[in-house]
């Protein structure tokens, strides 16, 4: 290790700006703490020591203004729908949404309820759907990696010009 440290000041790598930016963005996807129902418990497990989503650079934030990723974990009621939209609007660009679990994908188990929104994609755009009731931490981790892949494929500077 010591020899590598000693070598580093004199080494360099070549890349392009898009790749560098995307590498930074994908490796620091801070997610909004947003547990609505039982999926929220699995979301906490995913952030816990066994699944440890932090090792992908994804740390929980308690405010939408510092978040890049919204994980909608649980049943969205009609009463909550406007709040979900408000929280999404408060997140700075670029922002991504994972819809976690059957309820938030399509209404799921509570689809026939009078007060349940049939899928969070009726109020906000969704990048990735994670199926399951609730999904295991492995599934959500896979979902996060898929979002990272999506970020790597984007050409961020070109898109904003």
């Amino acid at each position: 290790m010591m020899s590598l440290y000693n070598e580093l000041p004199s080494t360099f790598v070549t890349t392009n700006v898009d790749k560098l930016i995307n590498w930074g963005r994908a490796s620091s996807l801070w997610y909004l703490l947003f547990g609505l129902a039982c999926c929220g418990i699995e979301l906490m497990q995913t952030g816990g020591p066994r699944a440890d989503i932090d090792r992908f650079g994804s740390v929980p934030r308690a405010t939408p203004r510092q978040s890049d990723l919204m994980i909608v974990a649980g049943t969205v009621t009609l009463k909550m729908a406007s709040r979900v939209k408000l929280l999404y609007d408060q997140m700075p660009h670029p922002k991504y949404v994972i819809s976690m679990g059957s309820c938030s994908n399509c209404g799921g188990l509570f689809d026939l309820g009078y007060s349940v929104l049939r899928g969070v994609d009726k109020v906000i755009p969704v990048d990735l759907y994670v199926p399951g009731c609730p999904p295991r931490p492995e599934a959500l981790t896979e979902g996060l990696i898929q979002v990272q892949d999506k970020i790597h494929r984007e050409r961020y500077l070109a898109r904003n010009n």
Partner: peptide, 12 residues
């Protein structure tokens, strides 16, 4: 009771 077809602009 009849289920609402719309709430707050959201189609139900």
């Amino acid at each position: 009771y009849m289920f609402p077809t719309e709430y707050g602009g959201i189609d139900n």
